[in-house]
């Protein structure tokens, strides 16, 4: 089950598509569900499937295909760093090493206090702002010097 607020948001998305094409709202429905729950359990995906009139397997296909969906529980803050070539040319690898050392974790790991999960990302379309990272899929931070990383982690850790 999802909250009334989430359902309201999903309903708004559904209105964007023709009445017989509710399935088109599945990507946003899953994103909204993930915002509420933190990650997508089978139960949540089944609910979305039922709500949109889709077979559950079709929803699992979408959730496993797009890489911003969380299919496992993770820390309070998911930090995704782009390490693709343009970012790597402008300090992404140093920024990655710094964050990893500061949090004491590697990619796909969660810090012991459960606050941070680190992910390696692909191009976010912001190469001019490298190094670039994304917090919980929504907040993009650019020009991440060690200083800025310190301040961000402090703010997020509170």
């Amino acid at each position: 089950m999802l909250s009334t607020e989430s359902i309201k948001k999903i309903d708004r998305e559904i209105t964007k598509y023709p009445p017989d094409q509710r399935q088109s709202a599945v990507m946003s429905a899953l994103a909204i569900a993930q915002d509420e729950k933190g990650w997508l359990t089978n139960e949540t995906m089944d609910f979305v499937a039922h709500y949109l009139g889709m077979p559950p397997i079709a929803v699992y296909e979408v959730a496993t295909f797009y890489n911003m969906y969380n299919l496992q529980p993770l820390g309070k803050c998911k930090i995704t760093i782009c390490t693709n070539l343009p970012c790597a040319l402008s300090g992404a690898n140093d920024a990655t090493a710094y964050i990893q050392q500061k949090l004491g974790i590697g990619f796909n790991q969660t810090s012991a206090d459960g606050k941070f999960t680190l992910k390696e990302g692909e191009c976010m379309g912001a190469c001019g702002d490298a190094p670039v990272l994304l917090v919980n899929n929504k907040r993009m931070c650019g020009f991440m010097s060690n200083d800025k990383i310190d301040r961000l982690l402090e703010e997020l850790g509170e």
């Binding site: 709202a25 990507m27 797009y66």
Partner: peptide, 24 residues
């Protein structure tokens, strides 16, 4: 329509599949 992280959806027919609520 908001995408959710798949480079391949920049390919126009993958994008259409994605808009239809499928894997791209």
């Amino acid at each position: 329509h908001h995408g959710y992280g798949a480079y391949i959806c920049g390919e126009e027919t993958a994008l259409l599949e994605s808009l239809e609520g499928k894997k791209g």
